[in-house]
Design a protein around this nucleic acid. Structure first.
Lengths: 206, 206
DNA sequence: GGGGTCATGTAATAGGTTACATGATTCT
DNA sequence: AGAATCATGTAACCTATTACATGACCCC
């Protein structure tokens, strides 16, 4: 729907969202990100934050409101959302909710080239992955339980539930993959072996 | 396992993998990426390719082998994998297969801030997403069928099957989410309404 | 009262994307 | 023969990450 956003880093979305609740200075935004757990959903490092706020300001989505100070701490510039910023926030969210993006998870790349490893080793590696995925699932479940226990409404835990659903699917996929590789009917062994013979031939030629 | 790879862009993994089959020049690498469909798994644009090849060369993973030409086309530099490069390829793959990375899909960010939109609208947007997810599923299924029909072994379609599994999970999640929002027992409505009252209050204050 | 950590940010550097340049081949 | 596309890459620009600087506050 929107050709190209003037600020494309999703960290900007977080900034717009926080500023829609009250004006803030960048450092406070960073604290929010960390404390409110949104740094799990959005890649965050302090340098990028100032950059993004600068971009948002140039685009007219936020405006310097005042430059204040707290006690004898360094001065800080407080930013507020503009009317354009409010529109951008809603429009951006609409796009992200309604339109699935084509993404590039690391595991997809790994699968695309996994035949460069010998099959026996791949089976072992997948088993290790399975274990680590299970740990992540447990961790997220714990996090959700703790949050609910502290009174956080489920509405604010949707990201984590989504991650969990993705991890469940990944777990199943990897399990089935391991089984398929072990199954003699699959017949990847000869294919795989040929592939490696070719690699070795090439290697000899250098 | 590896502290920090000297080349972190996964496009470099694709380059290492192709070069393990035969020496090539960057443009040919680009063609492979496109034609072999790996550009669906790895973000690719021509500029980045030359950059990454340069990084790999500085790191000693690939080396200029000769500078040739084809017909009267411009000269081109052919690169070959080094022994270090072969090691890096295997090590990198091992890491990517065995260790799940923390990722930041756009939809996670959307979910984290979705309460900034009114609930009625969110339901509609989710329904549209559902439709688009279904289309992607169909597209991938078609792609897999076509490839199998043309004799591509399933071993080289794992990425697409993985994507499919993730999309299935996403479809289910979104469906359940829509249902939960419609369910009176969920009781997000008042919460959500309060949230928006606060936003409006804030808006008035500007 | 000295050693950490917090608050606030800037500057340097590296990484990635877009736009363009140039000649060859191919199409109509 | 002119237009379009392919082959090959370079350069300029923008984005993002890392490293550092400075003074407060806090702890023992």
């Amino acid at each position: 729907m929107a050709g190209k956003r003037s600020v494309s880093n999703v960290l900007g979305l977080a900034v717009l969202s926080y500023l829609s609740q009250q004006p803030m200075h960048p450092y406070a935004l960073g604290r929010m990100l960390r404390d409110h757990g949104d740094a799990r959903s959005i890649k965050f490092n302090p340098g990028s934050l100032y950059m993004v706020v600068g971009q948002l300001a140039r685009a007219g989505f936020v405006a310097e409101q005042e430059t204040g100070r707290d006690g004898q701490r360094p001065e800080h510039t407080v930013y507020a959302l503009t009317e354009d910023g409010r529109r951008e926030l809603r429009d951006w969210l609409r796009e992200l909710v309604a339109q699935p993006q084509h993404e590039y998870p690391a595991f997809v790349a790994a699968l695309a080239f996994v035949s460069a490893l010998p099959p026996g080793e791949v089976t072992e590696l997948l088993a290790r992955r399975l274990d680590l995925v299970a740990r992540q699932q447990a961790e997220i479940k714990g996090l959700i339980q703790d949050s609910l226990a502290q009174g956080v409404p489920g509405l604010f835990l949707l990201e984590e539930e989504y991650r969990l659903a993705q991890l469940d699917a990944e777990y199943g996929f990897v399990q089935r993959l391991i089984a398929r590789m072990a199954d003699p009917a699959t017949d990847w062994i000869t294919l795989w072996a040929d592939h490696h013979k070719q690699i070795d031939r090439e290697r000899g030629r250098q």
